[in-house]
Amino acid sequence: MSNEHSATEEHAKRHKHEGPRKHIVAFIFSILLTVIAFAAVSAGEVNQSFIYIVLIVMAFLQVFIQMSFWMHMKDRGHIFPTVGIIFGIVIVFTMVIMAEYWAWW
């Protein structure tokens, strides 16, 4: 019984529960980013290039929040999913660049 108790304590030391506070803040920030993106698109008299830049920045921030807080990629021990995501991004960018190269020639 003492081995089970010490294993539980060890698990608790390594994986501290964050509580709902950070999740609520991340949720509010995600909603705020969505509202900003919607407002940028809804504003009719704004330069279209500026809207594209705002949307791309909001998308990157949204991905960072989703990965960090909801998928817990900020925690230790997530090296293999991180490597997989980076590998997937490299493959997608390579495919897009090759498709553009193929279409131009």
Results as ranks from 00 to 15, higher is better:
residue 1 M to L: 15
residue 1 M to E: 06
residue 2 S to V: 11
residue 3 N to K: 09
residue 3 N to G: 02
residue 3 N to P: 03
residue 4 E to W: 13
residue 4 E to A: 04
residue 4 E to S: 01
residue 4 E to P: 11
residue 5 H to R: 12
residue 5 H to V: 13
residue 7 A to Y: 06
residue 7 A to D: 15
residue 8 T to L: 07
residue 8 T to S: 08
residue 10 E to L: 15
residue 10 E to F: 07
residue 11 H to E: 05
residue 11 H to M: 14
residue 12 A to Y: 14
residue 13 K to D: 14
residue 15 H to R: 14
residue 16 K to N: 06
residue 16 K to M: 06
residue 17 H to W: 03
residue 17 H to R: 04
residue 20 P to F: 07
residue 20 P to L: 08
residue 20 P to H: 15
residue 21 R to W: 05
residue 22 K to N: 03
residue 23 H to A: 02
residue 23 H to L: 11
residue 24 I to S: 01
residue 25 V to Q: 15
residue 27 F to Q: 06
residue 27 F to H: 02
residue 28 I to R: 10
residue 28 I to S: 12
residue 28 I to N: 13
residue 28 I to F: 07
residue 29 F to C: 09
residue 30 S to H: 04
residue 30 S to I: 03
residue 32 L to I: 12
residue 32 L to V: 08
residue 34 T to L: 02
residue 34 T to W: 07
residue 34 T to K: 02
residue 35 V to F: 01
residue 35 V to C: 00
residue 36 I to Y: 13
residue 36 I to E: 10
residue 36 I to P: 12
residue 37 A to Q: 15
residue 37 A to K: 08
residue 38 F to W: 14
residue 38 F to D: 05
residue 39 A to S: 09
residue 41 V to C: 15
residue 42 S to Q: 05
residue 42 S to W: 13
residue 43 A to P: 02
residue 43 A to R: 11
residue 43 A to G: 10
residue 44 G to H: 12
residue 44 G to Y: 04
residue 45 E to Y: 08
residue 46 V to F: 07
residue 46 V to G: 13
residue 46 V to Y: 10
residue 47 N to Q: 07
residue 47 N to K: 11
residue 49 S to D: 14
residue 50 F to E: 04
residue 50 F to S: 11
residue 53 I to R: 07
residue 54 V to D: 10
residue 54 V to Y: 05
residue 55 L to R: 00
residue 55 L to H: 00
residue 57 V to T: 09
residue 60 F to A: 11
residue 60 F to S: 15
residue 60 F to N: 02
residue 61 L to K: 05
residue 62 Q to N: 14
residue 63 V to N: 07
residue 64 F to W: 06
residue 64 F to I: 06
residue 65 I to A: 03
residue 66 Q to G: 08
residue 67 M to D: 14
residue 67 M to K: 05
residue 67 M to E: 08
residue 69 F to S: 11
residue 69 F to G: 04
residue 70 W to R: 09
residue 70 W to M: 12
residue 70 W to Q: 08
residue 70 W to V: 06
residue 70 W to A: 08
residue 70 W to H: 10
residue 71 M to Q: 04
residue 71 M to K: 08
residue 71 M to I: 01
residue 71 M to L: 05
residue 72 H to L: 12
residue 73 M to E: 09
residue 73 M to I: 06
residue 74 K to I: 07
residue 75 D to L: 05
residue 77 G to E: 10
residue 77 G to T: 06
residue 79 I to K: 13
residue 80 F to V: 00
residue 80 F to A: 02
residue 80 F to D: 06
residue 84 G to L: 07
residue 84 G to I: 06
residue 85 I to L: 03
residue 85 I to P: 02
residue 86 I to A: 01
residue 86 I to C: 01
residue 87 F to S: 00
residue 88 G to I: 00
residue 88 G to E: 00
residue 88 G to D: 00
residue 89 I to S: 08
residue 89 I to H: 12
residue 89 I to K: 15
residue 91 I to E: 00
residue 93 F to P: 10
residue 93 F to H: 04
residue 97 I to R: 14
residue 97 I to Q: 15
residue 98 M to Y: 09
residue 99 A to R: 11
residue 99 A to C: 15
residue 100 E to G: 13
residue 101 Y to E: 03
residue 101 Y to T: 06
residue 102 W to Y: 04
residue 103 A to V: 03
